[in-house]
């Protein structure tokens, strides 16, 4: 009997010891696999635009912050489970996500685009430089894209605005293949398993540069509609209990901090550093 009691006691005590309680630290969830937004370097450290921006915002808010890596497909569930307090993971603000969580104002926006390997038949696709799905009169471009994608395997990262767009039917019924990470999409675009891929433009540019593979972007830059309204900080919807109030305050703090960082030019500076282009907003 004694041994049994002791075991239970030991387990309880050790459970208490390992449950760290963070009262003041803001924990930021990020993927660490979506360069240049966020990435992991060879020493296992999280790096990238959002990592640096996150720490800058925390400095402004005078909060202590720490980044928590989380796989993309579990990002929103993990936020809801309170594994972390906010998301900074290149996550676009979309009405669909807003049903479940809330967003700060956007801090950066960057168009989505199709990409193929050099020599693909899609290379000659003739469309205007950009398309905003919020505006009218896109039928002709969408029709061109629809016929270009017909019968092709189009690869995207799972649970992204890009997958949402292809599933929406705007470009007909497409043969979509969804991967866990953008890295995997890029690999299979190179291997030839994917005929064409859809993602943030910067991730293709970054990949082509880093790998030396002949990945080129084709077609228009997409924005609006399923592509959302820029990338913001994802936060739980506030509520009346202690945590809900804290979340609501966090949202206010982040909005204020983004304003300050924008005015000081911090966001633009970081955007140019990582994207070689001012994608701040």
């Amino acid at each position: 009997m004694n041994i049994f009691k002791k075991t239970i006691l030991t387990v309880l005590v050790s459970l208490l010891l390992i449950c760290n309680v963070y009262a003041d630290k803001v924990r930021i969830g990020t993927e660490g696999a979506y360069p240049p937004w966020n990435d992991t370097d060879a020493s296992g450290k999280l790096v990238g635009f959002e990592i640096e921006l996150g720490y800058e915002l925390c400095k402004i808010m005078e909060h202590q912050c720490t980044f928590v890596p989380q796989d993309w497909d579990g990002m929103i569930p993990a936020l809801l489970m309170r594994k972390f307090d906010v998301i900074m993971a290149g996550m676009s603000i979309t009405p669909e996500r807003q049903k479940t969580i809330t967003f700060s104002q956007g801090y950066a926006t960057e168009p989505a685009t199709l990409a193929v390997m050099k020599g693909s038949s899609l290379e000659s696709m003739d469309t205007p430089g950009s398309i905003n799905l919020n505006r009218k009169g896109n039928e002709k471009i969408l029709k061109t894209i629809t016929s270009a994608l017909a019968g092709k395997t189009v690869c995207v990262q799972t649970a992204t605005i890009h997958q949402k767009f292809l599933d929406s039917g705007d470009v007909g019924s497409v043969n979509v293949r969804a991967y866990k990470t953008q890295d995997e999409v890029n690999l299979d675009l190179t291997s030839g398993r994917c005929d064409v891929a859809l993602a943030a433009k910067a991730s293709f540019v970054e990949y082509a540069e880093a790998s030396g593979n002949a990945v080129i972007t084709v077609g228009p830059n997409f924005s609006g509609g399923a592509f959302g309204d820029g990338v913001g900080v994802g936060i739980r919807q506030g509520g009346d209990d202690a945590i809900g109030k804290r979340d609501a305050k966090l949202l206010k703090d982040f909005n204020k901090a983004i304003n300050t960082a924008r005015k000081k030019g911090i966001i633009s500076k970081l955007a140019i550093k990582y994207f070689k282009d001012d994608v701040s907003m």
Binding site: C19, N20, V21, R27, R82, K83, A242, I243
Partner: peptide, 20 residues
Amino acid sequence: SGAIMYVASIFGYFEYIEIN
């Protein structure tokens, strides 16, 4: 983690509990 936090909330503890 949801279950643990639910149990904690019964005891009136609403803060963030991080399990390693």
